[in-house]
Design a protein around this nucleic acid. Sequence first.
DNA 1: GTCTATAATGCGATAGAC
DNA 2: GTCTATCGCATTATAGAC
Lengths: 217, 217
Amino acid sequence: MHTNDVISSPSKGSKTKEKILKTSLKLFSTKGYASTTVRDIAGAMGIKQSALYNHFKSKDEILETLISDLTSSAIVTIFEDKDSQELYKQGKSVLMSIATIFKLLSFDAQNEALFKLLMQEIYRNERIREIYNEYFYQENVKKLSGLFFMMMQNDMIKSSDPLLLANEFFSPLFFYQMQVSLLKLDKKSTSSVVSLFEKHVDYFWDMIKIEKQTTLF
Amino acid sequence: MHTNDVISSPSKGSKTKEKILKTSLKLFSTKGYASTTVRDIAGAMGIKQSALYNHFKSKDEILETLISDLTSSAIVTIFEDKDSQELYKQGKSVLMSIATIFKLLSFDAQNEALFKLLMQEIYRNERIREIYNEYFYQENVKKLSGLFFMMMQNDMIKSSDPLLLANEFFSPLFFYQMQVSLLKLDKKSTSSVVSLFEKHVDYFWDMIKIEKQTTLF
DNA sequence: GTCTATAATGCGATAGAC
DNA sequence: GTCTATCGCATTATAGAC
């Protein structure tokens, strides 16, 4: 039986190195990078603080490694690698699957931690901002934009500004995800917010779709 | 000539106390609370660190005071105190003025700093989460919800779920405001995002409004 | 690769002169 | 109300035994 990790971290290394990264992500995403000490990390692992320096040369290097991992995480790759050119044909269901990916992100501990890390450090860490903006925001809005453009060309949705549509579709998903992560922090119920993911798609599609003309006879 | 401060802080006190709060907000919102030292604050004011303790008993008390100020800041009071019951009659223009308030928030240094402070500490400070959730999110979504409900009752907009509509209207505004604050951090152009505030309202209203029936003759 | 011990620095906060 | 001086403690990081 092999290990059942859904996501294998791209920063390969020793078993302890992996554990340091995992533990650090958990602590950084909870207490914030600045408020997490290397003693906290080592303590949570049951080793001494100095032992960490056999695997990373500084606390900062741990964060940098985690940020690098962010690039290839599920957070930034909302679209599957399917043939993007043909995706539009699926219509509403593409949008629904994107919303579902957003929704599920909050319920995978690893991805939730990455999201929280991103949110907490984005104002202080320029590299995080770059990754967020380039790989997460720009990339996805661009793809959505192309999707909507194709749908317009094929008379599936009403004609308008594809880029605006992409932003209008993307931003509530991001916001709802943030809401979920905040509610979970206080152990509050997330069900009403979670239902908004699907409602968003339903509402959004109803607004943009082209009504089937009811034939007169 | 009196001082020309647009917003007078509700935490009254001596001139230095005001200056400490102002300086702290600036630094907290830039470097984060944990990474800002009392020496940083004092240094930026040109006084010694120990002098701060004549005005606040701890670094934490400074943050707590700033958080208390948040409650009465422009960030959390998107709606003017006008008669909320009659607001709906203005139709689209109410929505536009709300979007404008959001937009302008980013261009008042004080409010922008408060927003950044909120975003940076919301995952670590339960009181900030409470204020955000209660006074900023819930309050405004509730008011928006009532607004949309009245509009539906009066056949101004299509009938649907008012609460969903409120969330769909609110979330892009929040997201765009975050985008603006991030872009400004890297001194990038914000014009394309800023234009989204108005475009959002235009698009949103077009989707929900009830088309005027063109009379046949 | 982990341990103990320790260096070197920075932190928040206090005491007391002025 | 600000200053100098200092305390006590926590921090990151290193050195060297095992």
